[in-house]
Amino acid sequence: MAEIALKIFRGDASGGAEKEYRVEATPGMVVLDAVLRVQATQASDLAVRWNCKAAHCGSCSAEVNGKPRLMCKTRTDEFQGKEIHVGPMRAFKLIKDLVTDVSFNYKTARMIPAFTPPAGEKAPFTMYEKDVERLYEYHKCIECFLCQNVCHVIRDHKAPFFGPRQLVRIASLEMHPKDTLDRAQFLKDTALIGYCNITKCCTEVCPEHIHITDNAIIPLKERVVDEFYDPVQWIWRKIMGRNSNGG
């Protein structure tokens, strides 16, 4: 039987290094299978997050050969002949081995003003496909945080920017036909959408193929422009009073 050589990062906040493990290769094996095999047979204290093993839950995010990927969706036969390096997500503080502290994402999520339908309006809502079709894409997000990890604003600049995941979430709320809140101010001053320079790495790594930049972030940036940077709309609002806009 063929063997796979894995170099897995082992260590914690105080430091660490890659360690080589060898496991038997099976047909269709994914990196997560190999890592769990290592855990079951050679290193029971190897820390790794995983749940569904079918790319539905977004738990097993890591960096495989330097690329942010879901381990359960990364086939080992893709690397034939090459070494497989598995490391933790680099944007977040390391806890141990492949596990990082992603609490930042939950803190920011908590700050986003929640879905707010018109007061007194009760379901069933009448909502047409036409009005909600673009929202389905945002709702596909499995919160793997790979986009947050690859975003250079968070990864390299350590800015308090909310990151692509939360912008996708805000997009899903802002464009919901039954939502009544306007989050433009929040986007500009708290989520810091202006920090995004639309360089699209988030879109490239998204395992759900959400067009994060084109379909979520840019439409939100345009909405922020409507309210804060568009001189004509500003004058219009001065004259007409602040009541009519898209938000």
């Binding site: 929640a114 879905f115 339908p117 009760k122 379901a123 069933p124 809502f125 009448t126 909502m127 047409y128 496909e129 909600v132 929202l135 389905y136 709702h139 709320l173 919901h176 939502d179």
Partner: peptide, 19 residues
Amino acid sequence: VYELEEWGALFDRTPDGKI
């Protein structure tokens, strides 16, 4: 199920806008 809709859930729609 309807309660979920009030909390922002989005199900596939029928042509007349129902779940």
